[in-house]
């Protein structure tokens, strides 16, 4: 299958390894990945911060970049939710593509670590990803999946909320980090690099805390490290 990747602006600039992992998984499964170069940002940040006009510009340019592609995948729950609400693109979050469209849960990965999974708000309540990411992680060899307490609680990121309401965001982050630490996991996985940047930034200040990882990186792994 030919699959067009919407990598997201954040991954492009800050977390290219998440895009690389997504490509690795899909190519390993025998699919052809394309990367339409006209893509940048879906407009979510602008729209949610209160700027509909710039948001529309980016929604349209994203739509144009992916015109003619039948299957679009993105490793970001929140961007997929935004594109679904504001464009007509046939876009799937990675776990939706794998489980629903490609009908695989075992992607041939091995990751010999203890992992806990945080279901981000967009994945949980807007996309209703349900247990798809956990099923994918459950099929990874040598991976021990640990339950995160109060998983459905928001991590406190919320885009510019983290700046505009920094104190509340920090308080929510503290609780999320405490729950993550309590699991004793080596890694905290999630389906959104933005939430992971926020949670990871908090975990980095706690000795012995799990390290943040996008679940695509785990699915790409075939040994002790993340990635191919």
């Amino acid at each position: 299958m030919r699959i067009a990747l919407f990598v997201t602006c954040l991954n492009d600039a800050f977390f290219p390894r998440v895009g690389i992992a997504t490509v690795t998984v899909l190519e390993r499964l025998g699919h052809t990945v394309t990367f339409p170069a006209g893509q940048s940002c879906c407009g979510q940040l602008h729209a949610n911060t209160g700027y509909p006009d710039p948001a529309r510009v980016l929604e349209r340019s994203t739509e144009a970049a992916f015109a003619g592609h039948d299957v679009v995948v993105s490793p970001s729950g929140s961007c997929v939710a935004h594109l679904r609400a504001h464009t007509r693109l046939p876009v799937h979050e990675l776990s939706e593509l794998l489980v629903d469209v490609l009908a695989v849960t075992d992607v041939g990965a091995r990751f010999p670590h203890r992992v806990t999974y945080h279901p981000t708000c967009h994945g949980l309540r807007m996309l209703r990803l349900g247990d798809r990411p956990r099923r994918l992680l459950g099929a990874v060899r040598d991976l021990e999946l640990l339950d995160l307490p109060e998983p459905e609680q928001c991590c406190g990121f919320g885009g510019t909320f983290a700046l505009k309401n920094a104190a509340v965001s920090g308080a929510m982050l503290d609780d999320k980090c405490a729950h993550a630490v309590a699991t004793g996991a080596d890694y905290l996985a999630a389906a959104d690099s933005s939430c992971l940047a926020h949670i990871g930034g908090g975990l980095a200040r706690r000795p012995g805390a799990p390290r943040p990882v996008h679940y695509a990186e785990i699915l790409a792994a075939t040994g002790p490290g993340t990635g191919p």
Partner: peptide
């Protein structure tokens, strides 16, 4: 950005962007 780093570390742009890798 100090509002961000008051509570958490900030990520830095990667050494190679995804599109350059691609």
């Amino acid at each position: 950005l100090s509002a961000w780093t008051a509570h958490r570390d900030a990520p830095l742009p990667a050494a190679e962007s995804f599109r350059d890798w691609w």
